[in-house]
Design a protein around this nucleic acid. Structure first.
Lengths: 344, 344
DNA sequence: TTTTTCTACGGAAACGTTTTCTAAAATAGC
DNA sequence: GCTATTTTAGAAAACGTTTCCGTAGAAAAA
């Protein structure tokens, strides 16, 4: 099945004008008389002519579209962030192509390859949990392909970056738990090598130190897929709950870790916050409907998407590589609700 | 900033062969000797050559990509569905471009326009709640642009369709509420003109009739944005709860209606299911963590995405329009949990 | 040896635009 | 009425592929 749309040549034949004249008329060139422009525009309108973007892309060597690589769409943080990206991209005449890595390095690689092979003018990326080697990114970046990193930041690449103050988020969360009277605060973290994990770990440690609590390595567990897979959270929890000195509360360092922690407690009939307290990162807008309502650190996902898209488009449209790069760090928001309230 | 990638001409110059020979060697043409093929392949590999997809698209008059138009990404039903679409699309060598209408007719129109202007070989569409006129779709369809409708079906377009048995879903939900002993069952529906709303309404009515309950028009409320906006749900609920004869339970006919119903009850301190029972459509995988756990009708979103993508690609690759079109109707799943259990 | 058939490759057109370079027609200046 | 300038428009090249067509040289057939 073939779909045939009108092209310049069709208009040219009907109106008895050359293809170049039609093109110029439609692009409002000064070298075409008003009379001709009107004639051409009216006919083009009538047959609902649209320039073939593929041909324009080839000619202009740009596609007016940007790529996004994220872990998964079905994650509220990322889907909110995409909304932010789309809103500024569309306003600036860019289209957005979304791809998900599902936390797989292989998929991230092939997605990037597809995007970079010139179907896209630049790329927004939050690396997968599996990604430890960034050669695929730096290689392209060195050759001039525009990148903006967000959320999970890569250190060894010089470009704009958009993230939140992970240290502060974790610090505030942990401090809140301390304030509620919890003593043995465990941490469920994302993959250990990720920037966000390290920063959140530091915030957690700092809050403990400030409260005079000792840091206990055995209370930390990392989940290689960021909690996307229930099994990994279950295993981490099982290990922690069978410690001789069990934790009395949790800091969950990502969206999926937070919800799967709740799922675990529900399954094991562990009462929150009576038995175990919780503050976790989450952008779900359902966390306040749970019983107890969850205390969460919320990331300004929409704003991050806006900022990242803005920076990327600036990069794409710049004639020369900018002298210095932005490193935007947005503040997280701590929402205190029932799950971190110590009973008794 | 410009990103320059290797092209055939570069290889041609280095190896002293013509561009056509390089192209044929890389495409494993029979008219090229093994020796030359090996030479070319090795060099191409070395410089990491990738054909420019834009040029290929122009030449082949196809982009090997499909478009998706949905209401919003941040909706579990749609994001799960997209995962299904992506899995089969990628397996067949297609890329997926996702656009969201956010329930706006205007945005749906411009998204479709962008997709159809040949950047995409075909389109999967679930119309926005605002869309009452389908001319933009039928016009393209008549000119041979491949469509597959899913979820929210359009009657007056002859093509493949993928949906669930909405009648059955609503019937089962309502019947479950009847079985629990509820008598005045209200329905929160999506925009009235949508196919899914009408089908779900029929199922609801049928279950009432079968149970010997009278259908009461005043217990039905439609939300123009499918519950995406909390305010519309709030208003509908306020109206229903101030009726002389209040409902004692609810059937919520979409994802967002279900969660916003819960939000309303939480805000008004209306206990579920003691004061009001609930069965609702939802694909959130958090509904079982609420207290009470929600009884939901779950749609096989992933499978719908797979099926829709499969059908669309079949349509795209067919030489002639098929004689008959599939009308796939998948079964919904009723998960009975606490929210529909009548307490004494 | 001469003619025919393969083999292996090069040249050029085509996909639908935009834009540079030319040039004809119209207008202005004298 | 003739030249100089401006206005308007067409021809052609370019973007990076793929593929149709043509052909030199080698091998096979006569």
């Amino acid at each position: 099945m073939k779909y045939e749309a009108a092209k310049l040549k069709d208009i040219s034949k009907v109106l008895g004008l050359s293809v170049s004249t039609i093109s110029r008329a439609l692009n409002d060139s000064y070298e075409i008389s008003e009379k001709t422009k009107k004639l051409v525009r009216e006919y083009a309108e009538k047959i609902n002519y649209r320039p073939n973007p593929v041909a324009v892309s080839l000619r202009e060597k740009r596609s007016r579209s940007i790529g996004v690589i994220i872990a998964e769409i079905a994650n509220s943080f990322f889907s909110q962030m995409i909304n932010g990206v789309e809103s500024v991209a569309h306003a600036k005449g860019y289209n957005v192509i979304i791809t998900q890595s599902l936390e797989s390095y292989e998929r991230e690689l092939s997605n990037l390859e597809f995007l970079a092979s010139r179907s896209v003018d630049g790329c927004l990326i939050s690396v997968s949990t599996e990604t430890k080697n960034f050669d695929h990114i730096t290689r392209l970046h060195k050759r001039g392909f525009p990148f903006v990193c967000f959320d999970r930041i890569i250190d060894d690449i010089k470009t704009h970056k958009v993230s939140i103050d992970n240290f502060k988020g974790a610090y505030d969360a942990t401090k809140e738990l301390v304030k509620s009277g919890f003593k043995r605060i465990a941490m469920l973290g994302n993959a250990e090598h990720l920037s966000i994990t390290q920063e959140r770990l530091s915030g957690y440690k700092a809050a403990l130190a400030d409260a005079g609590l000792v840091f206990d390595e055995s209370l930390i567990r990392y989940c290689l897929h960021g909690g996307m897979i229930y099994g990994e959270v279950e295993q981490a929890m099982n290990e922690l709950m069978s410690l001789r000195k069990k934790p009395d509360t949790f800091f969950a360092a990502s969206d999926k870790l937070t919800t799967n922690f709740v799922r675990y407690c529900k399954a094991k009939k562990i009462s929150i916050p009576n038995k175990l307290g919780l503050v976790g990162f989450s952008n779900l807008d359902l966390t306040d409907l749970l019983t107890p309502a969850l205390s969460v650190i919320r990331q300004p996902a929409f704003e991050m998407g806006e900022a990242a898209a803005e920076l990327l488009i600036k990069l794409i449209e710049a004639k020369r590589p900018p002298a210095d790069f932005e490193n935007m760090v947005l503040p997280p928001e701590l929402l205190i609700r029932g799950s971190s309230e110590r009973k008794k």
